[in-house]
């Protein structure tokens, strides 16, 4: 891998170093520097402009006593847990169905994956229309004769987050399915033959043999879905804009509204730091499991 080793330190490999300047700047200035800057200023009382006037943990106290933040967290928890479980189960089931050596596999895959090519804004607007209480699904079912049918996530604060969940699932399940399908294709044909010889049923084979074998694939899918969940923003803005009232607010929207609309930078920084902390809490155990073990070998 290394080119010939000549002992003249800094100037060895000069072109490679010059070519990597954009990457180094991005890593150090934007990713590392930017994050550190935000964490630092989250301890200040910055409002319209960033100012170094320390207020300790005041911003965090205000954040956690804010009704809107608590609703945001609650919504993200509901959305996160439901979409994690449902996309994993559905994604795997769909992949397993497609893996049964069926005809038109490509057609089915194309249909299930196409929403993933669409933006969250488009997804949100499409489902906003389908779930419209006056013209959408509710109105259609009522017109069919089921007069008391009621499903109006766009108007009902109690279930609005599930309306967003339906849209999010529609957009994202295809991705998980493709990842799972790649994992299933990587399983040795002999395993299938062995289970058939042993007379183990299909469902049992999947649950007890295939799923444990696909652990790394599941972990990858888990990491991808969860890092996507925490970024949930565009979909909410397009579909409900946080409404009705503040019943479908999410943390990412809280951050952006406080930074760029309410001109309360300190609050925005504190909220975004909390988001980062929660990602770190998810990421560190995963990174440890994935890479920590290998290094010791």
């Amino acid at each position: 891998m290394d080119s010939a080793k000549r002992p003249n330190g800094l100037f060895r490999n000069k072109s490679a170093k010059i070519a990597s300047i954009p990457m180094i700047l991005t890593a150090l200035v934007v990713f590392f520097g930017g994050t550190a800057w935000t964490v630092f200023y989250s301890f200040t009382g910055s409002r319209l402009l960033p100012k170094v006037k320390f207020v300790g943990f005041d911003q965090y106290e205000r954040l956690w006593s804010s009704h809107r933040w608590m609703i945001s967290i609650e919504n993200l928890a509901i959305y996160g847990i439901c979409s994690l479980v449902l996309t994993m189960v559905l994604g795997f089931t769909l992949a397993a169905l497609l893996d049964r050596k069926i005809r038109f596999e490509n057609t089915f895959r194309t249909i299930i994956l196409y929403p993933f090519a669409l933006s969250f804004v488009v997804t949100g607007l499409a489902w906003q229309w389908i779930l419209n209480p006056d013209f959408g699904v509710q109105a259609v079912v009522r017109a069919w004769g089921w007069e008391s049918f009621s499903f109006d996530p766009m108007n009902n604060p109690d279930i609005v987050i599930y309306g967003i969940l339906i849209a999010g699932m529609w957009q994202g399940t295809g991705l998980v399915m493709v990842i799972m399908l790649a994992g299933l294709r990587g399983i040795d044909e002999d395993i299938w033959k062995a289970t058939r010889v042993d007379g183990i049923g299909l469902v049992k084979t999947y649950v007890q043999v295939i799923v444990p074998m696909m652990r790394p694939v599941f972990v990858t899918a888990l990491v991808i879905i969860s890092s996507g969940i925490i970024k949930l923003y565009d979909l909410v803005v397009a579909q409900t804009n946080g409404g009705p009232g503040i019943s479908s607010e999410v943390p990412a929207k809280y951050v952006i509204d406080y930074m760029f609309k309410a001109q309360n930078l300190g609050q925005g920084f504190a909220a975004s730091t909390m988001m980062m902390v929660s990602v770190v809490i998810i990421l560190v155990p995963w990174a440890y499991l994935e890479f920590g073990g290998k290094k010791r070998d």
Binding site: F31, T38, Y41, K231, I256, M259, S272, M276, V279, L283
Partner: peptide
């Protein structure tokens, strides 16, 4: 993996 929100303002 870090949420974009922490880098937006910088």
């Amino acid at each position: 993996f870090i949420p974009y929100q922490t880098m937006l303002y910088p």
